[in-house]
Structures are given as C-alpha cells and as structure tokens.
Design a protein around this nucleic acid. Structure first.
Lengths: 142, 142
DNA sequence: CTATATGGTCAAGCTGCTTGACCAGTTCGT
DNA sequence: ACGAACTGGTCAAGCAGCTTGACCATATAG
C-alpha cells in the first residue's frame, strides 16, 4: 500500500472514530469540522476572522459555524476587550466538556494503535508526523 | 503536538498538495474526491454500486460523480459483460494520464518528506501507517 | 479629519450530497 | 417454470455548507 493512500485512509478513519466517540459521549449535534474550531477557540477564544483563517474558509462560513455552536450552547460571543468592532468567541462549559470528550475519544483510537504497534512505535509515529506537519490553515483531507 | 492533530494536519496538507500538483500538470477540472474514484476504477473498472461502497456515499452520489468524470472524458460507461443491469465504468486514456499525474504529484510530496526525515524514516512511516490502515470504505478526513 | 483598511453580518446562489420513487434485469422459492 | 423478492441504476426534489457580493461599524493612517 502506498504511503499517501495509507495516510489518507488512516486520517479518514481517525476522523470518523473520534466523531463516533464524541457522539457516544452524548454530543450528537456536533460535526467533525466543529472540533477544529474548538481547537482554535480553546486557548482563550478567537475572533471570527481568526477562526476563518485557521479553518481556511471565508469569514462568512466561519461566522455561520459560530452561529451553530452558539445556538447549541458550546460557545458564546462576547465583546472584544481591545477592539469594539470585533467579538471574541469563547467556549462555554459545555464546549469544554465536548473538547474533553473529543480528546478522550482520540486517546482511545491512539490506544488501539498502541495495541497494534506498541508504545515506542506510536511515539515514533507521532514524532515524525509532527516534523512534517504544515503550519498554515487546517485543510480538509478531501 | 498531539498525534491525532499532526496526522490530520499532514493528511489535509497532502491532499491539497497532490491536488495542486495534478492541476499544475494540466488537469484543472478535477476535485480531490475524483482521485479516490480513479483509484477504485483503475484496476479493471467498477460498477457504480461498487464505487459508492468504496467512497462511502449513496449510489446516486457515485452515479453523479461518474457523470462528471465521463462528461470530462476521464472515464466511460460500458455494458457489463456479466450482468445486463450493471454498467462497467472504466478509465479512458485521459483517465489513466490523470492517475499517473496524481501518482507523480504524490511522489513529489513524499520526496519532500524524505528530505526532512530521510529515506529510512519515511519507509518506517509507510510501514506503520499501512499496518493501522482500515479496510472499509474511504472516509473524508472531515 | 478625511480616506482607507479591517471585523462582522446579511443576502443570494451554487455544488455535492441526501432521501424517496421508480424501472430493468437477476436470483430465489416452490 | 414462474411469480416474489432482491439488486444495479437513474430521475427528481430537497437540504447543508460553502461561496461571492454588498454593506455597516469601528479602527488606523496620512
């Protein structure tokens, strides 16, 4: 099997399994794309424009995505402390809970890989992938 | 950086770069999803239903995707030799050319990884990813 | 203090998927 | 052998998530 094919197959499967795990933990109204938004919002919030840049989509699309997660109680819009034009989107407690669920779910999948490859190999995998990971916006795998 | 985040970032970047390379080689009317269809069609053709199962979408969606690549000259529908209900979708010469372009493009990206990690590490990466790659349908990474 | 740039939203439109209905042809049960 | 049920494929309608374009409010530069 070719490296690129294996990588894409594993990535797709990973996404699916994380999502399944998140749903199984009680967060049924969440799409995989939301997870990438949560990751950007988690540290201390972000503006819609920052989120758009991170996700590689237009501001309008990011704004719409924020609408969804706000409507469902995962985040809220607050006035930005330094710029009256901007609004800071921050996770609610439910948003944090969902983020933790996603992390637990991801850890579960990685745990299955440890079963197959052993801990050392998985660590090596992580180290190598980290070294070739790009900096720019997150891009959908297709 | 977490393993799962690195993997998804690398996968998204890989998809984007392969696609860019395919476009640069003169195949501008192709989406990343088409590549996964080509991979299934390449050996000796496939039916719409087989393609749908491979891509994890409905028959209708697969049929529509086949419409596109047929309209653009990458494949053609032939009567199925063993089942008069079915139609065998096979790549045209242009479809093969595009497939080769995608392979060359992928090889280019992997070449960049070899620059970063060395040949042995990349081989090890391939071997490990192959071992954890799933069997089922290909799934979008999000 | 005007002129331009930036953050955000509203509105309309498109693309790629879904569900539902249906026909042609194959396979199964008796 | 023959009707019932299943399977491959298409047509049609609808929807979700994105895009482009226009616009307002605030900030920054000359």
């Amino acid at each position: 099997m070719a490296l690129s094919a294996a990588l894409l197959a594993v990535a797709g499967d990973l996404t699916q399994r994380i999502h399944d795990g998140v749903v199984a933990r009680g967060f049924a109204d969440i799409r995989p794309a939301h997870g990438f938004a949560f990751a950007r919002l988690a540290p201390g919030g972000a503006t819609v424009t920052e989120l758009a840049a991170h996700l590689g989509v237009t501001k309008q699309a990011a704004s719409q995505l924020v609408d969804e997660i706000v409507r469902r109680g995962y985040a809220e819009r607050r006035p930005h402390p330094e710029d009256a034009r901007a609004r800071l989107v921050v996770l609610t407690e439910q948003g944090w809970a969902c983020t933790r669920a996603a992390e637990a779910s991801a850890a579960e999948v990685v745990g299955a890989w440890v079963e197959l490859l052993g801990e050392g190999e998985v660590r090596a995998l992580r180290e190598r992938l980290t070294r070739i990971a790009p900096y720019g916006p997150i891009r959908p795998a297709w």
